[in-house]
Design a protein around this nucleic acid. Structure first.
Lengths: 340, 340
DNA sequence: TATTAGCACTCAACTCATTCGAGTGCTAAT
DNA sequence: ATTAGCACTCGAATGAGTTGAGTGCTAATA
């Protein structure tokens, strides 16, 4: 048995209807809802087939049908109409270019959540591959230095360095020159242990203090990315009864608060990137088990200069996929342009 | 009618019992629970009095009694036993002094939440009154400068400054000297508009570029504190049925995600500080209406050098106040010592 | 042969009455 | 002043009955 045109239409109707109402949908409804002009009986026969094929299922014997994960998948892959939708507010919002990156991302998350009525997340861009533009070491007082590193994309990192013995002006100057000439133009990931050893050698091993400082600078530069993630609209999950029983809500909320789960999502998305850049995980397909009752839509944005990040929407399986994908596309377009 | 010794004991028993079970507590229970050796009938009479006095109330005619806000208040103020409790893990945790402040605070929040089974928040310390130790302006490339400001407590702020025309070395040097001599030792809040105007005058008004740079530095220094708040254990509210219906849970979760509400809490706490430093808000007493069905316990920690922050616990009214206050005291002690 | 009308059947959800029991207030006895 | 005892209240749990949306199957129809 194969999926003919009519079965597809019926499946589509089931999905659409279920997305709207959240209730299992019966044969009579479909019979009226579609333009097929078939009686409910015929629809029933077709639906029995669709169930056998695994595209829809019955929550209990005398209920209507709801789409299975497989059914959603088919819908998402082949049956979503392309809609041109205005997301005016987003443009207005993003185009006024919040000066602070974190503000911008937070704002973006809030926007995504408000616009879709699902929970949203936005990861800060990862800067792997970013190149060092500027390094400076300055003395704050007798025993403390501050190291400032500026990378492409105007990413600034700094660190206080405590030294056991004061560093004199001349040494400081030498160090600055050394650091700048050696590190400039290198990407953060290129600065590895060998590099550091090399630097130390150049600085002269007899100066223990220099070694100490270089270690600190290396730590500053190589500092483990802690991948900030901004979330918004967690409360939206309460709008969908199928997610808001205590057990499930608790899990999802927790995932949103302790961000680890979301980290996996981000990594998954970044490594997994497809042509369109938008990925849809339905139920069990999701890379994180906490989300097995949800659908997750993620996408990658690209600020240029190797700075890539992820935005995502988490909602019920009966998510309005078209709207979400639309919104995400629109936001990505805006984000991509922010720093052009 | 006054509260005699016996009424107090009964009230205490009601509160204790309700804290444990979350169920309205009846006269018979009390009669057995306490060492008063009174029959349930007597207890009933006393409870009727207590109800009239407003310390307890009945959810419905034939149910037991639960403490009113007023009852909780009396309990918290006068009847909590001082317990010496070990919070060993906390010591171990905090004493190993996470190098990064934000890691430490996040960890603290997580600890509070885990230890108490309520939702926890920790605000980053506010630095009002903190003094500038060091200011430096460096050139990154032709059109971009980076301003670095270090304040007491080794709080570092920095900002990129784009200039329309390149700044030459000499000007940069002059600016650095000017900035350091004028700003050093001032508290961040002392650097106001007048101060800035003064600086500009000294820099010489004919140099438009200088003015531009000073504005940017001022912005860096005076940068609006955005008061980072770390939260943990939001999921814990699902453990208490009286908070986990959709409506309430949604509100609380939202307050935890969009941090504004918590900001009010922090400000309230910092201005309102009492002798003990620990404040308990029960139900409607809470400064934020979102928390009207909860109890909120807050406290102030002090890292010295004018750096103060807030920790807080949000849970149901039937919160184990003794444990919470204990835990908070312990954590505060640890926090206070971290930077001594 | 594909479609449909019709019918018996299923089952969650709702209603309604009943029971149960924890709790109360009151009164009379101690 | 305390208590035993009793009638009373009322939410919660139970269970029977009803409803209605939905199904599968079969026989009639186009």
């Amino acid at each position: 048995m194969e999926l003919d045109e009519r079965k597809l239409k019926i499946l589509q109707a089931v999905v659409r209807n279920y997305l709207e109402t959240g209730e299992p949908v019966g044969s009579r409804t479909i019979s009226k809802y579609t333009d097929l002009n078939l009686s409910s009986a015929t629809i029933r026969n077709e639906m029995a087939d669709l169930e056998e094929l695994g595209y829809i299922l019955q929550p209990h014997t005398s209920a209507g049908r709801i789409p299975s994960d497989k059914g959603y998948r088919l819908y998402v892959d082949h049956m979503m109409a392309e809609k041109e939708k205005e997301v005016q507010e987003i443009k207005e919002m993003l185009l006024k270019k919040e000066e602070k990156m974190d503000q911008l991302l937070k704002q973006t998350a809030r926007l995504l959540a408000n616009d879709t009525n699902y929970a949203a997340m936005v990861s800060a861009p990862m800067v792997r591959g970013n190149k060092v533009k500027f390094v400076q070491l300055s003395r704050v007082d007798e025993t403390q230095l501050v190291a400032v590193v500026v990378a492409e994309g105007n990413l600034i990192r700094n660190n206080m360095i405590s030294v056991s013995r004061p560093v004199d002006d001349e040494t400081l100057l030498k160090l600055n020159i050394l650091l700048n000439t050696s590190l400039n133009g290198l990407s953060l990931s290129e600065i590895n242990l060998g590099m550091i050893a090399n630097l130390k050698a150049q600085a002269g091993a007899h100066e223990a203090i220099v070694s100490e400082v270089i270690d600190a600078v290396a730590a500053t530069i190589g500092e483990e990315e802690d991948l900030e993630i901004y979330t918004s609209g967690a409360k939206n999950i309460f709008k969908y009864p199928e997610l808001s029983d205590n057990q499930k809500a608790s899990e999802i909320i927790n995932a949103f608060e302790e961000k680890n789960t979301l980290h996996s999502l981000v990594h998954q998305t970044l490594t997994n990137e497809e042509s369109t850049g938008i990925q849809v995980y339905i139920g069990d397909e999701s890379p994180v088990s906490t989300m097995k009752d949800c659908s997750v839509v993620t996408a990658t944005y690209d600020l240029g200069e190797g700075m890539k990040g992820t935005i995502g929407i988490i909602g019920p399986k009966r998510m309005d996929y078209e709207k979400v994908v639309d919104t995400m596309k629109s936001i990505m377009k805006q984000l991509d342009q922010v720093y052009k």
